[in-house]
Every structure is written in C-alpha cells, then in structure tokens.
Design a protein around this nucleic acid. Structure first.
Length: 488
RNA sequence: CGGGAUGUGGCGCAGUUGGUAGCGUACCUGGUUUGGGACCAGGGGGCCGCAGGUUCGAGUCCUGCCAUCCCGACCA
C-alpha cells in the first residue's frame, strides 16, 4: 500500500477514490461499472443492513424475494415508468452458449433466442405488482408491507465506486394500502425511518423534503427524499420514499373488495436506500488520514496495539480488555501482527477508520494505564486500566455524537439564503452547499437554472416556512424558498 | 455516448532511434531493531490491458476492441 492519500484540498475526487481503495472498501472489477465490495466495505454494509432491517421489522414490514429478471413487456405497462428506466437497462436475449464451430471459444447459440427478452431489474415495482395482483383480493389482505434486499442493474454511462455503479445492492420496500391516506402515511413513515437511520447511525445530518415534479421517481405521485451535504459542498440524495398513488395498481390491475363489497384499486408506496450510503458515509466524516467510521456502523470499534510488540504481560492485559468490552457489545481487535511496528499500525488503523485505538506498552502498564487515541479528533490521552471498558463505552458514544455535530455544523454553515441569480452563482462557485432561494414553481424555470448553474432543486424541505418572495430567475411570485445544490 | 488522458510484477512508476523488461514499495528467508509508516543481506514474482497487423525482431509502430480517470451529456 502506498503511504499517502491525495489530500481533500488538492483533489476531492481523487481523495475519494483513494479512500475507497486504500481503506479496502471496494475496487473495480473486470466488468465495466461494476465493483467488487471487499470484506471491510461489506462489513459496513452488513451493519447498515442489520440496523435498517430491524427498523423495517419494527414498523411492521417483512422480507421477501422476487426475481432478478423482468419480462420486457412488464416495463411498458406504466408509461412514466418506462420513460424513466428504459434507456439504461441490461437485456437478456439468449439462454444458451455453444462452442464456436470455427474454434474461437464460446459463442451465443443463435437457436437459443428467448421469445420474450428479460430485463435485469433496474427496480422491482413491475414484477412485484404483477405478483401482488394475485395476493390482494380483499381489504383484509391490506396493508401488504414487504421489503426486499437485492441487487439491481442500471447501465450508467459514468460510474463511481459506491456513488453510482452499474450494479448495486439496496433494499426496496413495496407496500400496498386500502386508502390514499394510508399510502401517504407509509411513505412519510419510511422517510422518517431513513432520516433517523442517517442521523443516529451514520451520524449524517439530512434534510427531509419533497422532490419537484421534474425530479420525481418515474411513476410516482410524490417522491420524498433525504438530502445530505458532503464535505466538498455537493449534495447527495441518500434515500427516497415514493407515494405511487394507484399508478401501478392500475397498470397491473390490482384491485380489492372493500368492506362495502365494492372493487377499488390499491394504493402503493416504494422506498429504497443503497450501497450509495457508504459513499455518503465516507464523504461525511473522513479526512486526509483515511476513513472515519461512526462507532455505530464500525465493524471493529477498538484496535489494540502492543508497543513495541506483543509480550506476555501486554497480551494478557489486552485480552482482558477485549473480554470486558465484548460484554458491553464492543468489538475490539488485538493487533499482534509481529511484522509491523507500532507506527505502521497506527497509520493503518487510521486509514481503515477504526474509531478508537489503544496503545499498550510497558511504560503504560507500570502506571496501570493505556494510551487511548480517538479517530475523529486524533487526540491521545492516558487512561487508567481500572474501568477502561466504561471509559471506552462512553468515548464511543461521544465520538458518535461528535461526528454528527461536526457534520451538522458544517451542513448548517453551508445553507445560504440568496435572493438574486448573481448571488446564487457566486455562492455556488464559492462556498458551495445548499442554497435556499425562491422559485416560481415551474419545471421550465427549474431546468433553466440547472442549465445556467448546474445546480438542481434537491427538495422542498418538509419543515419549510411559507415566505413570499420573487423567483431568482423569472421574478415571478413564490410562496416559499426551495433547496438548491450541485449534486452527486 | 462525445472530447481529453491513461493502461508495464499486488500497488506506484521508468523504459531513448523497434533488439527480448527495470526501479520504488509490498511479499518470502535470516539478522539487528521497535512509544508515529525501521535497517542490512539474500530471494521469489511480469500473458507489458486484449486481439489482429507491419517487421528478421514489437512494451515501443499501425488498426480494432476492453477498462479506468477527468470534462460534458445522461442519471429514480
């Protein structure tokens, strides 16, 4: 491993790529746009999965699994949906290979052409709603609250590890309800779940809001979003929850009998977050020394480094600490690798984002102490061995809070109100971040601003306060400010 | 998909007018070291992105393809 990361100030984009590779989170594969998620990256994803899955279960959802392949005709059932996805799908056309008669390896067997092509799912609304038709007959079958953990494929032209890959892992919730109100409540509930997860576990502050018609999910009546701000001043859409109205129910003819024996179309929602969250995690907290993982998502909380190398006394103390921490649900690893010296290990654990490092040498043991180094601030202090487990437990909580507060302070300092287009451009090119400005509510203006500035409307915040003003582009009346930013 | 750049041991790179591949680091062995990325000695590892072509001879020249990075377009 080379010893240094590109610094953030030098080249933020190169820094991001360096972190992903040097913290061993992921790497490019032999397939265009597809990544190999390495054990360290996948361990973080597993922590994300476990926590979210618990939260989904607590809100009444169950898991199921639907096919990877979708018959081509399904995608054309919902008109807006096909417009939104058709351009970037991988298509399966044949089902068999054969030896090349000319001896050039293996070729696609021309006789094995599929009667109907199969699309590798870019999202599963269609296959799921086709299934729901058979599952939903009565109001007693509702609500149907199902989540799926899966991979999806979107043939993106330009990819970036975790942020936008051709194949990615995600969860997609698909629910069915008897009434419009219930559907809206569900989509709002799941937005709250996402926001809570982002802030409490990822320590990533988010703004909850509604997407404009232009940014809405293909086939949705309303798209709710959580938007986070990265260290370089660009926004990241971290999760979305859609109220789908009756669009998919009508497209797939999913009806139920209500208690008055009348037939009605079902109301739907869908919601998802993906491995993109890991990209958000990286860009919220990490620094020029490497990855910083909030304790609640860290696969390993504490690294214990013997100084200068393992000895009987040090190992004994280290194992005792590990045992005490384990009882508190804290994962500690004793780095007794004799190949590397302490300085190397310090740098390595910092790169990998381990929240707390303990250094134990004979000098410490003579004083019944250990050296505690926290990853977020890089502060070091000597702490008594007595009660070290409680100390670390509290410290992890403090780190978790500090990361959130730090990110929130940065985010709040980078929300700027502007009233003119000149100011808008100036802030966008200078300090960056979110810009709160008046907009006349038309898609035309939104697109024009995007063309002029590259900034998009990230959302209309849910907690927005009404305020009369004039659109920064057209001067037409506006009743509230909306949130603009350049986005990933 | 358009413009630009790149592709050589795991990683980072050098390789001149075409002559049969080298450095740093990592790895293995031995020794000395060890409180912030150790040092010495010895050693192993390369289809030079892939496929064609030119040539007595290609990492080097030509064509096509693949992948990655940057800038656009696209992006739920």
């Amino acid at each position: 491993m080379s010893k240094e990361l590109t610094s953030r100030s030098e080249d933020y984009s190169a820094w991001y790529n360096d972190i992903v590779k040097k913290a061993k989170l992921a790497e490019h594969s032999a397939v265009r746009g597809c990544m190999v998620i390495r054990p360290h990256g996948f361990a973080i994803w597993e922590k994300i999965q476990r926590q979210l899955d618990d939260m989904f279960k607590e809100t009444g959802h169950v898991n199921a699994y639907f096919p990877l392949f979708i018959p081509k005709s399904f995608l054309s059932r919902e008109a807006a949906h096909v417009d939104g996805f058709a351009k970037e799908c991988a298509v399966v056309t044949h089902h068999r290979l054969m030896n090349d008669p000319n001896g050039n390896g293996i070729i696609v067997d021309p006789d094995a052409k599929l009667e109907e092509e199969l699309i590798i799912r870019p999202t599963s609304e269609t296959i799921i709603w086709n299934t729901y038709r058979d599952w939903i007959k009565s109001y007693r079958d509702l609500p149907l609250l199902i989540n799926q953990w899966a991979n999806v494929v979107r043939w993106e032209m330009r990819t970036r590890l975790f942020l936008r890959t051709a194949e990615f892992l995600w969860q997609e919730g698909h629910t069915a309800h008897a009434t419009k109100e219930e559907g809206i409540v569900e989509s709002r509930t799941m937005l709250e779940v996402y926001a809570e997860f982002a802030e409490k576990y990822m320590a990533m502050p988010v703004i909850k809001g509604i997407k404009t018609a232009n940014e809405r999910f293909a086939g949705a009546e309303e798209t709710y979003t959580i938007e986070a701000l990265m260290q370089d001043g660009k926004a990241l859409q971290a999760g979305t929850s859609h109220f789908l109205g009756q669009n998919f129910a009508k497209a797939f003819d999913v009806k139920f009998l209500n208690s008055n024996n009348q037939e009605e179309y079902v109301w739907a929602t869908s919601w998802g977050v993906s491995t993109r969250l890991i990209g958000g995690l990286i860009m919220s907290h990490s620094d020029d020394q490497g990855l910083v993982i909030p304790p609640k998502l860290a696969p390993i909380h504490v690294a214990i480094v013997p100084i200068p190398k393992p000895s009987e006394e040090i190992t004994e103390v280290a194992l005792e600490i590990i045992k005490k921490l384990k009882a508190k649900g804290i994962v500690a690893k004793y780095d007794d690798d004799e190949r590397n010296r302490p300085g190397f290990k310090f740098a390595e654990h910092e790169m990998m984002g381990v929240p707390v490092r303990l250094g134990i040498g004979m000098r410490d043991l003579a004083n019944q102490q250990v050296e505690v180094a926290r990853r977020d601030t890089k502060e070091k202090s000597s702490v008594s061995l007595e009660g070290i487990d409680v100390y670390i437990e509290n410290l992890l909580e403090e780190i978790q809070n500090n990361l959130f507060e730090r990110a929130k302070t940065y985010r709040d300092e980078h929300i700027t109100k502007v009233d003119t287009l000149e100011e808008f451009m100036e802030v966008l090119e200078g300090k960056g971040g979110f810009i709160k400005a008046h907009w006349d509510g038309t898609t035309e203006t939104e697109l024009k601003i995007k063309e002029l500035t590259k900034a998009t409307i990230r959302c209309i915040p849910l907690d927005n306060e009404p305020e009369d003003g004039k659109c920064i582009l057209t001067g037409n009346p506006s009743v509230q400010r909306v949130l603009f930013a350049k986005a990933y």
